[in-house]
Amino acid sequence: MTVAALLWAALTSIFAGLDRTALCQVMLARPIVVAPLLGWLLGMPLVGLQAGALIELLWVGRLPVGAAVPPDDTQLAVASTLLAVTSPLGLLPAGFEAVICVFLVLPFGRAGEAFDRLARRANNRLPQLAGEAIEQEQYARVKWLHLQGMAAFALASLATCIALVTGGWLLLHGLVPHLRTVLAAAGPWLWPVLPVLGSAVVLAGGGVRHAWLWFGGTFLLVYVLRLVF
């Protein structure tokens, strides 16, 4: 892992972290975008694409509704891409680096929640300070306070990313060397878990009448068509 790779990952993590809640929300923060982007910056866009697609599909049905904070899939994508691209040659079975790194960072997925809550709680003081600024007719200060809020979100993203990369790196170097043969054989079986699980979460969420009929019917139709042609 080079210093340049770490810097690129930190930058991506901050920018994507801001797009996630604080700025724009044009979905640059989604795993399917941010992971190939980081992969491209580090020279392996397809590894990033694989990691991003898998994480995206796992949480395709998760909603950031109201005050409920979902797991930070953005930073999971950044961390798994960084680990997959920079892992020492030969440590991970070729072609399955991304999948395995996604599974390595998943156990730490909840870390993001803690930092995000911390940032939102730190921002609690801002509206009050803004109220005081208004009383003193210092309207430019309102802007600064607002920017401080964004800084808190940026820091939380970076902290989450660091926690995930550290955890994943420890697992990668502590666990993976002992599992090399198993991982090489299990590689083709591991990646389908995530898209299938994500689809199951969408179906379980409900909201579509007769969803299981639509799902089952389409599944059988596509499968049979594929067999025939």
Partner: peptide, 17 residues
Amino acid sequence: SLTLQGSWSFDGMQSLG
């Protein structure tokens, strides 16, 4: 309006934004 949630907080939520 693109930065509406920039200073999201549990108390005011998007008030400052």
